[in-house]
Design a binder for these strands. Sequence first.
RNA 1: GCGCCCGUAGCUCAACCGGAUAGAGCAUCGGCCUUCUAAGCCGAGGGCUGCAGGUUCGAGUCCUGCCGGGCGCGCCA
Length: 600
Amino acid sequence: MRQILDSLLRDALHSLEDSEGWTGLAETSPELERSRDPRHGDFTSNVALRVAKRHGQKPREFAEALKGRLAASELVESVEVAGPGFVNLRLSAEAIHREIRRMLAEGESYGSSDAGGGRRVLVEYVSTNPTGPLHVGHGRNAAYGASLANLLRTTGHTVDEEYYVNDAGRQIDILAASVWLRYVEALGNALPFPENAYQGGYVRDIAARLVELEGAALCSDLGPVAAVLGPATDGGKESLGETDAANADSGEDTDERMDRLIAAIRRSAGEDAFNTVLDAALTDILADIRDDLEAFSVRFDHWFSERSLTGGGAVERALKTLAADGHLYENDGATWFRSTALGDDKDRVVVRENGATTYLASDIAYHLDKCERGYDVMLNVLGSDHHGYLARLKAAVEALTGHGERLEARLVQFVVLYRGDVKAQMSTRSGEFVTLRALREEVGNDAARFIYVSRSNDQHLDFDLELAKSQSIDNPVYYVQYAHARIASMLRRLAEDGLSRPDAASVDLGALEQPEERALMVALGRFPELVRLAADNRAPHHVVHYVRAIAAEFHAWYNAQRILVDDAAVRDARVTLALAVRCVIRNALRLVGVSAPESM
RNA sequence: GCGCCCGUAGCUCAACCGGAUAGAGCAUCGGCCUUCUAAGCCGAGGGCUGCAGGUUCGAGUCCUGCCGGGCGCGCCA
C-alpha cells in the first residue's frame, strides 16, 4: 500500500516537472509519512514545503498544483491541502479492507519483506567472557541482539547469529586458578583466596565436580603456590598474602601477583592438570550460558572460539596481513598497530614485549575471519562500556579489507535493577550480582524479554522487578498478551456457538463503520512499515511501543463494541478485524521473543 | 583533561529523514462488570523538552557553548 501511494506521488511530481518545467522534483524523495493526527488524513507529504521556494512558488500553491496532478486511485478517498502546505491523503475503505484481507492471507509472514535483498548480516552479541554465569546486563544484550536478528531476518536479510567465546587469555587463566584453589580447598587444604580471583559460588561448584571426577589427581606439591599466596589468614577478609593494604590496593602489584600465582599453579600441578581444570571450568560455564540463553529463546548459529584462532595460526596470519600493508611497526620491543592512521586516537599493541599477542590481535583475526566469510554487514552488539574499543576495531577492519564501514556497532546501555524503590546492587567482583537465570525465574521469560527491549538500546534501563513480576495492570507484557488471549477466548466462544469463522477472502468489512474501527485497521496496516523502520534503525523498541498501542486500541474497541452479535454481517466483519489484530500482535511479539498465549 | 552516550509530565519512557496542538504507562482524583476474560475500559489534572545562542518556512530532533548524569581512555579481556 505504502509503495503504491509513493508512486502516485512520484508520478504527480513527474507530471508537474513536465508541464511546469520545474526540474529536480523527481529526485526529491517523496517524503510520504503517516499522519500523526487523524484530522490530517492517513498519509501526509511535505514536498511542497521543501521545494516550493526553489521554484518561486508559495508552498500552498505548489501543494494545490501537486494535488491537481495526483491521479485518481481507488485507494485514496480524498486529497487535501492543509496548514502551511501539507498534502494529506485519506485512504479509501477499499484500501483499508484490502490490507486487512492481506494480513489474514499472509498470516505469520505478514510484516515481512525482502527489503534487505538477501544481504548477509552477522549479528554478534552477548559474547561475554565465559568466566561466570550471565547477569542481568548480559540479558539485555541478549534480548536486544536476538530481536534485532529477528527483525533483520524478517526484512529480507540473511542473518547469522554468533557468540564470540573469549576462551583464551589471562581472564581464563585466572578462572582456572580460582577453580583450582577451590578444588584444593575442597580437598582439605586451606590456602588464602585472593580478592581478585573469581569469588562466585559457581567456582566452588565446578571445583566440587572436579573432586568427584578426578579425586586428588590435580593436586600435588602446594609449596610454591603457598609461597606466592603467603600464610593463610584465619577467618575474616581473605587477601593476598605477604601484603599490607597499601600493596593490595595497587593494581599492578595484585595483577603481577596473580600472574605469579598462575605460573606457580602451572608448575606445581603441572600443565596437564591446569588445562584439565581450565577445560572443566569452560565446559561447565559455557554449558550454563548456553542453557540459560536457550531458555530465553536466544539461539546462536555459531559459537566462535577465540582459542581456535590463537591455536590455529589465524592470529599470526592476520598480523602478517597487516604487516604486509605496512600497518605494523616495532617500538619498545612490542609490535604496534598504526590505528591512528585510520581514525583511532592512539596506536595499539598487538604483540607484547614478552611475545604474547593481545586481545586485540585475536579480535583482529576474528574480524578477518568474519570478513572472509563474506558478510555485507558485521553488526556487533556491545555493552556501552566497550565503546572506547570501537575505533581500533574499525581501524582494523579498514586496514584488513578497506571496508571499515561494514563493521557496525550498537551499544547497549546498562541495566539498573530495582526492587520497588530499592536499587539492587550488582557487582561482578564480589559475586553478588543478579544472574539472568535468577531474573528469568523471578519475572518470567516473557516479561524479561519485553521489558529489556522496551527501551531504546542507548537509553539506560531501570528494570523494576516488582513491576515485572506483578500480574496486574502495572505490567506492560500482560496488557498486550491479554489482548491476544481475549481474542482467542472470543474465538473459542464462536466455535462453541457453532458459528464458523468468516472467509477472509470474501468477507464484507463494510460493517466496520466506527471511527475507532477504521483507526484500528489503519494502525494494523502500518505494521510492515513499522518492521522495516525498526530493522533499519536497529530499534526493536519500536515494535514494543507499536504493539502496545495496538493492544490499547483493541481493548478500547472490545469494550465499546460487542464482537459476537446476532447480525451475521456485523459479526463476521468484527471477527475478521479481531483476527487481524491477533495476527499483528502475534507477529510483533514473535519478533521480540515473547509468547502470545491463548488464555491467561 | 579528552572521547562516546544520555537530560522530555511527580516517576519510568515514546516521538518514524526536522513537520501541524510533544504522546503513553505508573502514581493522584472521578466513573463502568446479571452480555465475548475488569490482567480491561471511559474521564480529569499534570510540560519554558537541562540552560543560552545559532541554522530555516518550521527544532525535543541539526550546529556551537555551558550545566548535570553514565561510561570509557592498559603491552587487561
